[in-house]
Nucleic acid binder design. Sequence first.
DNA 1: ATGATGTCGAACATGATGTCCGAGTATGGT
DNA 2: ACCATACTCGGACATCATGTTCGACATCAT
Lengths: 202, 202
Amino acid sequence: MPGQDRRIRRSQRLLREALVALIPEKGYDRITVQDILDRADVGRSTFYTHYRDKDDLLLAGFDDLRADLQRDLDALKPGVPPHPTSPTGVIFAHAYRHRDLYLALCGRRGGTVAQRHLHGLVSGLLRDHLRPHIEAAGSDLPVDIAAAFYTSAALGLLTWWVDQDFRPGPAALAGVYQRLAAPGLLTALIPPASEPPPAVGG
Amino acid sequence: MPGQDRRIRRSQRLLREALVALIPEKGYDRITVQDILDRADVGRSTFYTHYRDKDDLLLAGFDDLRADLQRDLDALKPGVPPHPTSPTGVIFAHAYRHRDLYLALCGRRGGTVAQRHLHGLVSGLLRDHLRPHIEAAGSDLPVDIAAAFYTSAALGLLTWWVDQDFRPGPAALAGVYQRLAAPGLLTALIPPASEPPPAVGG
DNA sequence: ATGATGTCGAACATGATGTCCGAGTATGGT
DNA sequence: ACCATACTCGGACATCATGTTCGACATCAT
């Protein structure tokens, strides 16, 4: 059974790697299951015993990514009070460390499923990050709207960055993001204007 | 021939309407050409004489939309110097007037093609709008990055709005967008800080 | 070594895609 | 009114991708 596990994981890893490698080449929509099979040198039924379809394979790889990103973010939360980076900065750094994967997930040739899931993930993240700030300030700004705005802005920047071959470094990108995002949020919080936290706007 | 033209346009209109109606029901990816044919009550080869595939049909409808939106925006440009609304405000109003279409284009169940094209359209729009401001201010902010940021923010808000059944009115939405977007752009322009135009940040 | 467990991949049935060709219909000239 | 023309319509077809089935095979436990 442990040996079987090793074999299973081997196929799964091969399939996932094949898909990630194929996406920048052909574009997710044009990739056929047979393409993945050929690239991974794995049989058809092997694929279908592990995954329901192409989307399922993509999302399985996504779970690992999500866990990894969550670890980075959890490491940020209890950190020193003047956070060195925002959640968005962590995401950019994470994307830079996993360039191949993010190229497939939010690059030009990625698919709807990946983008949607990444959006959902980041959206939940930012909502949780923003809510306390907005509530503490007693602002009338709806949390959902703010989350939608900043999630799409961050992911849009990320997508642009990926398609630019990660040209400005992750720190520079995070800097630009802060520069554009933070002032708007700060002024949107002013009605009672209680606290100006160091790294809001994530 | 004029009669023929009428017949042609009839089929084309029926097909486009069928697709737009189908997208919110089934989701673009799950729609089959046969679904469109059945809904429009049009024959198979009729479809393929006019369009190469499903994507082509969608994009054809897109051209009309693009022209319509461009008219609204052109009407804005030579307007009174203190523009009453930003380009983004115009887009929100346009989306509100064509709710059915935008529900298909950027709603939850829309497809990759539509979103990509809409993104490209708005991106070009905002780039042209932002460049003079940034250059006039002599800011070091790269135009492309700013365009990526604000395009995604605007379209993300639009997508959220569409999925909320266009709940806050278009004016209210445009107001929130301005509130979140404008301060960041204004402070990003400050290095020389030459002019504070009324409705930047589109 | 041998049985139990679970994977591998060729072959198959189904459904979607895009093409082809004969039938049908409106137009325009006579 | 009639015919010829031009163009559209849609059923039938070949092709391709998908997801399933089933026998062969490899690995581990006893």
